Simulated assay, not measured.
Amino acid sequence: MNQYRQSPFANLTPVVKNLLIINVIFYLASRFLIPANIFDSYGNFSAYYFDSPFFKPWQIITYMFMHDPRDIMHILGNMFALFIFGPALEGMMGSKRFFNFYFICGIGALFCNMAVQAFEVHNLIGTFTVSSQTVADPIVIVKIREIYGSQILGASGAIFGVLIAFAMLFPDVELMLIFLPIPIKAKYFVTIYVLFELFSGVRQSQGDSVAHFAHIGGALFGFIMIKIWGLNRRDNHYY
């Protein structure tokens, strides 16, 4: 046995490594270290609809580092995808550009989700805010409260940007998935995944709390950024 076997974390690129660390710190601190009666980290750092009384400007960034405390797979899934796909992208783009790419995708994901929420609010009351509206219909009130009180949290939007970028820049890399034990090229896997998220968002199943349109938004912004920057696998200059 090789006692000098290299650590799986040895080849992590700087931005990916720091994003992993920060996400884990946020999760552990919010889940175990900070009592909710002292500071409501999930209420303050998760994001809300822009007209919600719970919305704060810093949530545009902080929501990306918050994950569902009731489902450890939420953070594990996101961090595993970042761990697997992030280093190749950072190595190709360079750390500065990858940093910008990650956060642009995450912010874009939130804006897309808010746009869908705004569309839903407008369909209910005819405007995008309730500040000047008197709502009497109890069914509409319940739906408005759900929109205004729902939290958006997690790195998934930014991760979908990472996935779409990987599929565009490394389309023929074959992936082996636990639930699909045959190799599938990145371009096919990511395309199917994005289409599934779009279908799930449009369908809006009862009890589904996943922000599917945030995922779509992250993928959309990732696609746009790769096109704007004109990146391809032949690039030999990094930033």
Score class of each variant (00 low, 15 high):
67 H>F: 15
68 D>Y: 06
71 D>H: 09
72 I>C: 11
73 M>W: 13
73 M>H: 11
74 H>I: 13
77 G>M: 08
78 N>P: 05
81 A>V: 01
82 L>F: 00
83 F>Q: 00
83 F>V: 00
86 G>R: 00
87 P>G: 05
87 P>E: 07
88 A>C: 03
88 A>I: 04
89 L>E: 01
90 E>P: 13
90 E>M: 11
90 E>T: 10
91 G>I: 05
91 G>M: 08
91 G>E: 11
93 M>N: 12
93 M>D: 12
93 M>Y: 14
95 S>V: 11
96 K>C: 14
97 R>W: 15
98 F>S: 10
98 F>Q: 07
99 F>P: 13
102 Y>M: 09
102 Y>R: 05
102 Y>S: 07
105 C>W: 00
106 G>V: 02
106 G>F: 03
106 G>Q: 05
107 I>Q: 01
108 G>H: 00
108 G>T: 02
108 G>W: 00
108 G>R: 01
109 A>N: 04
109 A>E: 02
110 L>S: 05
110 L>N: 04
110 L>P: 05
111 F>T: 07
112 C>H: 04
112 C>R: 00
113 N>Q: 14
113 N>K: 06
114 M>Y: 08
114 M>G: 01
115 A>G: 10
116 V>G: 01
117 Q>W: 14
118 A>D: 07
118 A>K: 07
119 F>P: 01
121 V>N: 11
124 L>V: 02
124 L>F: 03
125 I>Q: 01
125 I>F: 04
127 T>E: 08
127 T>H: 05
128 F>T: 12
131 S>W: 08
132 S>C: 03
134 T>E: 12
139 I>R: 03
139 I>W: 04
142 V>S: 12
142 V>E: 15
143 K>E: 11
143 K>W: 02
144 I>N: 01
145 R>I: 04
145 R>Y: 06
146 E>W: 01
146 E>S: 11
146 E>L: 04
146 E>H: 09
148 Y>P: 08
148 Y>F: 15
148 Y>Q: 10
149 G>W: 07
149 G>A: 07
150 S>F: 08
150 S>C: 05
151 Q>N: 14
151 Q>I: 13
153 L>V: 08
153 L>C: 10
154 G>A: 12
154 G>K: 12
154 G>W: 12
154 G>R: 09
155 A>D: 13
155 A>V: 14
158 A>D: 04
158 A>E: 02
158 A>F: 03
158 A>S: 14
161 G>F: 01
161 G>Q: 01
163 L>H: 04
166 F>S: 00
169 L>F: 08
169 L>G: 04
172 D>A: 10
172 D>P: 10
172 D>C: 06
173 V>Y: 14
175 L>I: 13
176 M>W: 14
177 L>I: 15
177 L>M: 15
178 I>P: 03
178 I>A: 11
179 F>E: 14
180 L>G: 00
182 I>S: 07
183 P>K: 02
183 P>G: 03
184 I>L: 12
187 K>M: 06
188 Y>K: 12
188 Y>P: 04
188 Y>R: 07
190 V>W: 02
191 T>G: 14
191 T>Y: 09
192 I>R: 09
192 I>Y: 14
192 I>N: 12
192 I>P: 07
193 Y>W: 13
194 V>W: 08
194 V>R: 09
194 V>H: 08
196 F>S: 09
